[in-house]
Amino acid sequence: MSKSIDSGTVVYEIKATNPNAIANYDAGKLVKGIGDDLIAFVGRPIQGLVVKANDATAIVKKVKEDLVGGKCAQPWLRAGMSGKDMIFLVTDLKNAKYERACTLVADYKGIREKQKKLLTETKVYNLDKGDKVIDKAAKDMVKALGVKGDGKGLGEIDGSVSIILLAHGDEDKTASGQIYGKDFAGSSPKDLVALLVDNKDPKKRLNPSYSGTIYLDGCFTAQGGAMQNYTKQVWELLKAKGIKNCKVKGNLGAAATLKSGDELVTTTEAEKAGDKLTAKAQKDYEKQIAPAQAKIEEIWKKKYGGKDKDGFKNDPDVAKLNAAIEKARNDAVKKLEAELKKIPGYEVKNLVGQFGLTRLN
């Protein structure tokens, strides 16, 4: 039975109007085309989707042989949806009977719709209501992600709904100096799990079948070793309560919520390196501008006697020196920002640690 691609669903296409053009086939671009389609439909990248690109590559190899053997003249390569599936289809612009095809992703339509539904079922909750920073973060995240929840309080947390809990996280140090997340929303792991599991209202607690992801979105929530890691402790306590199918994730350092809904996370190691780099940059900058500052001071005292402020302010030599200082400052800031970005773990988007089904427990 001949295959066809639904109108408007093509994500990858090559019209090989001459035999050599089929060499332009690129499996990487084919996979990217499907990924871009998912982002456009779902609103975010989907991790772990298996695309049978090797099957498409095998078909292209056969088509090349058909070109040499004269069975095909002008192959038309396309990837798109055929009913529920994402398929790879090669036809011949000169021969309506020619066809080679394979399924790239079975039930692709269902996968897209399920992932979009999961996104809309994500809920954001503010556990530090009244705190200006967290109130703003919750508002920005709800708006950016287009998710459910007003960020005001827990409720309706059941099934596979993903939960984002926003609050401040506090850090502490072990005897060896290791930083770890001490608490979150002013609560210990035990108290937080009680909030999620022991509410008298069944609509405001997790049940044993809960299979979503709980994001403890605060500073240092996933920072620290096994005994001090707040996120891991929450996961272990939930598991002990019989909730074994969920995942719990937290931030691997200090975090700041962007208007995009992403978290900008800096590890403690990166923060220390950044502070050291900033201190050196400040020292170098001050040394660089010291001669210009001394010259300005000299002009003020000798030329204006420390009295004529208007004359001093409008002095062209002073203006040139101030411009040089400002340029040095801008150059130093630009250089520092570039160097900070090179530090591993410095201001990384969504740098998290996760516990649950993806790990051995």
Rank of each mutant, 00 (worst) to 15 (best):
T278S: 15
A240S: 14
I22T: 07
K15R: 09
L351V: 07
A328Y: 00
E236T: 12
D183Y: 02
A319P: 07
T266D: 13
K249I: 09
Y215L: 08
N54G: 06
F312I: 13
A23V: 08
Q354F: 05
A270P: 14
V161R: 08
G186P: 03
K64N: 14
K313A: 14
V265T: 09
D308I: 14
K123G: 10
D135R: 01
K182W: 02
L321N: 02
L192W: 00
R78F: 00
W300S: 04
K232A: 11
R44E: 15
S176I: 15
T91S: 09
G28Y: 03
V248G: 10
G306T: 07
A96N: 06
N314Q: 08
T213V: 09
L360M: 10
G146A: 12
G274Y: 01
V105N: 03
E156W: 05
G212A: 09
G48M: 08
K283V: 07
G306L: 04
A294S: 09
K287H: 08
G250Q: 01
T278Y: 05
G69L: 14
V147K: 04
A194W: 00
D275P: 04
L258S: 09
D275Y: 07
A137L: 04
D172K: 13
D201K: 12
R100Q: 11
P316Q: 06
A185Y: 03
Q282D: 14
A270S: 11
L166I: 12
G305R: 03
V105C: 04
G151Y: 01
L357E: 13
I214L: 03
M141K: 13
G305W: 00
L336P: 00
K276Q: 12
S209A: 13
K204C: 08
G177V: 15
K283N: 10
S82D: 06
L351I: 07
V318K: 01
K283G: 10
K301H: 03
S187A: 11
A58Q: 11
K239N: 13
G224S: 06
K136A: 14
A73M: 10
G80K: 02
G305F: 02
A96D: 07
Q223P: 00
L252K: 04
T268D: 15
L119W: 01
D198W: 08
L77K: 00
G250H: 01
K71I: 03
N361H: 06
K132T: 12
G151E: 03
E236Q: 12
W300Q: 07
T231K: 02
M1F: 05
S2A: 14
E156C: 09
V51I: 15
D55T: 10
F220N: 02
V51L: 01
N199F: 05
K114F: 04
I299W: 00
M227V: 11
N322I: 11
A79L: 10
L264P: 05
Q47Y: 03
G224T: 12
S4P: 00
E156F: 05
E286D: 11
G83Q: 07
I243V: 14
L30Q: 04
K32A: 12
L258A: 11
A281R: 04
A324C: 05
L277F: 02
S2C: 08
N199Y: 04
A27P: 14
V10I: 15
V10N: 05
Y108I: 03
I46D: 05
Q115L: 07
N330Q: 13
V105R: 02
Y285I: 10
